[in-house]
Design a protein around this nucleic acid. Structure first.
Lengths: 246, 246
DNA sequence: CGATTCGTTGACTGCACTCAATTTAAGTGG
DNA sequence: CCACTTAAATTGAGTGCAGTCAACGAATCG
């Protein structure tokens, strides 16, 4: 359905309410409609490598991608998990600081970079929304440094699941059901480990441990059910609903 | 010298070229001059606690502060190190997500929050500069997650020193001398450890180890000389000058 | 000069990593 | 549909890096 760019209208876009265009009037939307194009990346594809040219500013419409960096000796760390409405790229910079890899089949809504920079200058609603989203991302990145710097393996895995559940509920625009959330993991164990600053083995062991503690149920390796969300949140060292967002 | 706000002019402000006001015209500066006020915090003072009201949006003029979070059991992680021209607070949010603590005597240039939000809406040069700075901070925060997630204690300490040297040279607006940089540490060992996700003891041991390797010289606990900057950068796992900024 | 805080060093422990084997899942072609 | 192959995930055994606990030394300050 998203293969022909001209056929998709902003009016029915699933990220209309949360993406960089969220604050736009219908006039402004008409303008964006002219400038945008879509592109699809199959799961596993590298959207852009660290240091490479970024020709477009893009928003994720459907799918999921990681932001990561690989050190010379092969160690890798994910620095972000991008879900629908999150953006890739930035005005004023032509190269990506990180690898961006599609985890699932991913549809991007894109603007040519210099074109988008012009839009930013002329459309305060875009610039303002972009600032808000960037400030939110900054808070989230800082929250995540607390997890990476100070938490145990068990707490890291619990934090990740709690954050992922919260974010997915936001993407689906549905509140977290009080009892029994099911999270679909868009990442393999290896990608989870790279996100958490752990090894595959430790990640796997902690999932097993959380299951044996009754805090989660697993249904295949990609589905995790959280019977008592609050209990897992406490395990994550997360007081109430404040703070941590992936 | 900064005790009377009315006596200080933006024209001679040390952060004029790098702060949120950097892109402003002299007309716009006149307007900021009316709205601004200064406040000084002695070293060790908490500027604002996590969850507390933030009445102002502030830029650091002189001094140094940490952004941190403390878990219930006392574990603490610094999520940012604020140097002159960095800002505290954000438009659109009235409470601080983190503790902000002055490390040295610190002078802030402040705008009442709702007033600043109005300025953001009416002064594109401010909004645009704020966006650029926030995007830079986001990249820096993500760079730092790589250090926290994947680096050894030795690499963490080396990374920190390299980043601090680079940032201080930017604050001083002087290029890094090719041979022999001296860094003044604005943090105690404990604060360094909180920044690096390590303990005081491990941090201290790694400094000793780097000294014994000839990569640094120490002059008291707060001064570190880096005889060969590139050598330390390599130890930090940092290829060339790309990437990592604290 | 004594008191107190900060930093360094030492001895030992433990959590997460490494290496390796096994189990489970996901494809693939006959 | 089922053998076969390949990849992903789990589990086990042992190691090592950073943490913990504790003592000592150095710097700062009244």
């Amino acid at each position: 359905m998203f293969h022909r760019s001209s056929t998709v209208s902003c009016g029915t876009c699933p990220i209309r309410k949360r993406a960089v265009c969220a604050e736009c009037s219908s006039d402004e939307l008409d303008m964006l409609e002219q400038a945008k194009s879509y592109r699809t990346y199959p799961a596993g594809t590298t959207i852009v490598g660290a240091g490479e040219m970024l020709t477009h500013f893009s928003s994720i419409v459907i799918g999921c991608a990681t932001l990561s960096r690989t050190l010379e000796d092969g160690r890798r760390q994910n620095v972000g998990l991008l879900l629908p409405s999150d953006y890739i790229g930035r005005p004023g910079r032509s190269r990506s600081a990180f690898d961006v890899v599609a985890l699932s089949d991913t549809v991007l809504c894109r603007f040519e970079r210099t074109e988008f920079e012009k839009i930013c200058r002329t459309t305060p609603h875009i610039a303002s929304r972009l600032l808000t989203m960037t400030l939110d991302e900054l808070d989230a990145a800082r929250d995540w440094t607390v997890v990476l710097g100070r938490m145990t393996a068990r707490e890291k895995v619990a934090s990740f699941l709690v954050n992922l559940a919260r974010r997915q509920s936001r993407v689906d625009m549905a509140p977290l059901p009080e009892n029994g959330v099911t999270v679909r993991l868009p990442l393999s164990r290896e990608e989870m480990a790279n996100h958490l600053g752990l090894t595959i083995e430790t990640t796997s062991r902690q999932i097993t441990a959380l299951r044996k503690s009754g805090l989660i149920d697993t249904q295949g390796s990609r589905y995790i059910r959280i019977p008592d969300f609050e209990a897992l949140a406490i395990e994550a060292g997360d007081d109430e609903d404040g703070g941590l967002i992936v």
